[in-house]
Design a protein around this nucleic acid. Structure first.
Lengths: 204, 204
DNA sequence: TGCATTTACTAAACAGTGTTTATTATATTC
DNA sequence: GAATATAATAAACACTGTTTAGTAAATGCA
């Protein structure tokens, strides 16, 4: 009965269609303005149809959340070739920051929004996320082994590094850095200089 | 005509009543679940009445936003007496983190949410915020003068410190630190250890 | 092929949201 | 006491996410 397989394939295609439309609308208008009705309009189906393929709005954005992590992961792993772990750490950090500034809506979904976390907490997922964080842990443990950075607990160091770059990006994308009262490019300059200073302080 | 003054007073009292109710509901249930209707219910007026005293929901939460900054500012300035600026910086940092963890909804409104920022950007306000950030700048400039921390640009250093503690708090309150797969108190332990490590790295 | 059943889809409704408008009741002024 | 200004509201508007009941088409079986 190949008919069942075709049905399964069609179901998956419909899910993809919804996700593609949702992603495109989300990146254009953000989470709040992307309503189930606007997605339904876009794919030319009724709103109720979407609920045949996804439990609720959160489930849709959880898929986008996963895709975004795959994207970030790919970006970060581009620095795999850098032999020196401290140099690699710097490259990873700068790429992380750039990713956040260039994809503020993705960054929001991944690290700021509360909504899609409901899905994640219960399950053993957080897959790609674990992956990117795992990459940070690996790089930092190399740095520690080779005494490129000051000796300290691995997890404590990882949380320090991640919190710092996350702080930079999230204060910027949520427009709190306007406290500097500088034009936008000057603010970005301070941001990147701040990262360099952090790395210098980290160095042995 | 004292009657006009009484009217003015009554208007202010009504505004206070709304703000008090909104604050209480907000701290109990968060921003999204605090609807205009629920505030109206609480103060036993119709929803439309609220719009006679506030332009929109954002304006209400902008007032709460200001109050929250006053609260944080008061907490931070408790360390005024600490003579050594580096020690004072540490105390300020730990208090900032504790404030965030103990008042996650206030912290959200102050540093994470997008909503009330619309009010702020245009005006010259951001008052109390400027104040708390100003306090950080003062303390850091003393640290730099007395060579307690590594020499660097003041604003770059300030953004580094603020971004770091904000990163710690916001990753925690938005439940991203669950990546550590540790029980909650262990996570908090890592968080505070991470702050101590940061301070050690900052030291001359 | 014809009928029963499952599947895919949707119109309409439900319970909410922030906000506006037209109306009423009260208080103030002349 | 009549005219006017003020305060409050009921009802509606335009949205939101989600559910329910009903329809039309595709499938399974005789």
């Amino acid at each position: 009965m190949a008919i069942k397989e075709r049905k399964e394939r069609e179901k998956q295609e419909m899910r993809n269609l919804i996700i593609e439309s949702a992603t495109q609308l989300f990146l254009k208008q953000g989470y709040d303005k992307t309503s189930i009705r606007s997605i339904a309009d876009d794919i030319e189906y009724s709103p109720a149809t979407i609920y045949l393929y996804f439990k609720d709005k959160d489930e849709i954005f959880y898929v986008i959340h996963e895709n975004a992590f795959d994207l970030l992961d790919k970006e970060l792993r581009k620095h795999d070739a850098i032999a020196d772990p401290f140099e690699r750490l710097g490259a990873i950090g700068r790429t992380y920051i750039r990713f956040g500034l260039e994809n503020p809506d993705y960054y929001d979904l991944m690290f700021i929004m509360r909504a899609p976390m409901e899905q994640i907490k219960n399950e053993e997922k957080w897959k790609a996320g674990e992956c990117a964080f795992g990459y940070l842990l690996t790089t930092l443990s190399e740095c520690l082994e080779q005494k490129k950075i000051r000796p300290a607990d691995l997890h404590v160091t990882a949380i320090m590094v991640w919190s710092f770059v996350h702080g930079l990006v999230s204060l910027y994308v949520r427009e709190r850095m306007c406290i500097l009262m500088m034009p936008d490019d000057a603010t970005r300059g301070v941001l990147y200089n701040s990262f360099d200073l952090f790395m210098a302080n980290l160095k042995t």
